[in-house]
Amino acid sequence: MAPARYVGDLIFSFARYLGDLALLAGETMRGIFHGQVRPQLVVQQIYEVGFRSQLVVLITGAFTGAVFATQTYFQFHRLQMDTAVGPVVSVSMFRELGPVLCGLMVAGRVGAAMSAELGTMKVTEQLDALRALAVHPVDYLVVPRFLAMVISMPLLVAECIGVGILAAYLLTTQILGVSETYYVHNMLHFTGGRDVAMGLIKGMVFGVVIVFVSCHQGLNAREGAVGVGRATTEAVVIGSLFILVVNFFLTMALNIFFPAGK
């Protein structure tokens, strides 16, 4: 009986957690549609989550593109398909590697910061002070972060993909000696708007996942410094796992609207 109860408890607490996230999302939407948007805070958050994440995202994109191009080249070279490296890297960066790796890096950098900031505000009664001043914490803290993420994430993903493709192009054509003309021609031939759309939509969805998971952890932090530390760690771990799981379902669903290779 004990294992069955354990599994049951686990499912129940997971369902409750998803319910909490849905309530937070609902409260955020209510804040936005009731006109509780503070443009100055949105701009400030775009700077924090978007502008300041660029270096991390660019390095991730560049080295992922370069490594992926190298591995693909070594395999394809044996089959004399060197110029196919371009489309393989490009489609992979757009559809999977760009959004997922960018999402994981942002979950680590931004998710941790959001959770720690809100958690500290919770344990030092700053959230209660906001409430006592008749300001809804979700309106003041979550709404600007949500909007900033929805705006910033597709742009960060686009940067990550762009740099990845550029790094792959330079490496393959300048160092490994593949013909530039055929590389570019094949890449443009096999990469379409559907791949771009998939990458950007995934990026936006991952941004939403990161913001709700991180803010939920921060707003529910307990037990002082230890609680803030735990909330921060959990925000990164849960956010990253959610990105991987959501990515699978998103890939399945988006392939209906944006099928690969057509």
Binding site: M121, T124, E125, D128, A129, A132, A134, H136
Partner: peptide
């Protein structure tokens, strides 16, 4: 729904609870 009542009140927290 509490916002209206809270606007007519003020609270001083034990440790100040200033926005840091």
């Amino acid at each position: 729904e509490l916002a209206k009542v809270r606007r007519s009140m003020g609270m001083l927290f034990q440790n100040g609870a200033l926005f840091d």
